[in-house]
Amino acid sequence: MAAPTSVAATRRMTAGGARRTRNWREIRAAYGFISLWIIGFLVFTLGPMIASFVLSFTDYNAIDSPQNVGLENYRQLAEDQKVAKALGNTLVYAAMYVPASMAVALALAMVLNRVGRASGFFRTIFYLPKMTPTVAVGALFLLLLNGQEGLLNRTLRLFGIDGPNWTTDTHWVKPGLVITTLWSVGGTVVIYLAALRQVPKDLYEAAELDGAGSWTKFRKVTIPMISGALFFTLIVQTIAALQMFNEAYTMFFGGQQNSTYSNEAALFYVIYLFQQAFRFLHMGYASALAWLLFVIIMIITAVQVRVSRRFVYYEGERD
């Protein structure tokens, strides 16, 4: 608690009695400034977390009062085929999307880093799709990925390849979604390019003097020097991918009152949770679903942090 005061405190030591009162005023003011966040945290984060945890042991439809069912929801989780399906879909998608987006973004950023001033123009082009609302992206790619007449398969046909039914074939729906979301990879490109520009030029020169080829330079200089950015995007992209909703829901779920459509191959975890909570009003069960997702995300993130720790290099960290 008393840790971070050091510098300011020692400097003010000489002020003697005045110090105390000023300190109290500062503390009061500080808590005044951050009070908004504290209230928000209690009301919209901590409170709901506790409530959600409690609800996960109940049967609750938002109208009648919650009925305690003990561990029943969690038992049901283990048996629900759709949970397994949704979890599998989500993990498969994340396992495809995260490495793909990192590889594509790194490749583009490295090329961008080679063209000097022209990179500004291309960077803008690559970033533009990210400004397109995800619902519009979903609508657009439903057409582009259409099995018979879509632009992608027409293009593939020019090369003699018979493209799959990206939007209907259960095996190709998730790769189709990976393509859809890869269109918005521009944000990651911008991050990697910024990191690449921070790499000191002389490291490459030194490596060249030692006779390093381009692959060695890439492996031994580029990757370690931008490992911070790689690590950061790995964590953030994984967490985001595990919560995939917008594009998949836009493309494969919905309908009007009496005619709904859905596609099990695109049933992602958050979509299933949303349906359980707000379509079927199984709020207790959906809360258990939410906590399972939370635990899964924490485990995956912890593993990634663990494994990455050996590879991430922060400048100035080693003395």
């Binding site: 919209f44 984060t45 409170g47 709901p48 977390m49 409530a51 959600s52 609800l55 938002a62 967490i239 595990l242 919560q243 958050v270 949770l273 909570a277 707000f278 709020m283 959906a286 809360s287 679903l289 939410a290 906590w291 997702l293 939370f294 995300i297 924490m298 993130t301």
Partner: peptide
């Protein structure tokens, strides 16, 4: 780091 899903229902 907290997934939106955890607070979604109580906030509703």
């Amino acid at each position: 780091m907290l997934p939106q899903a955890v607070t979604l229902i109580p906030v509703y």
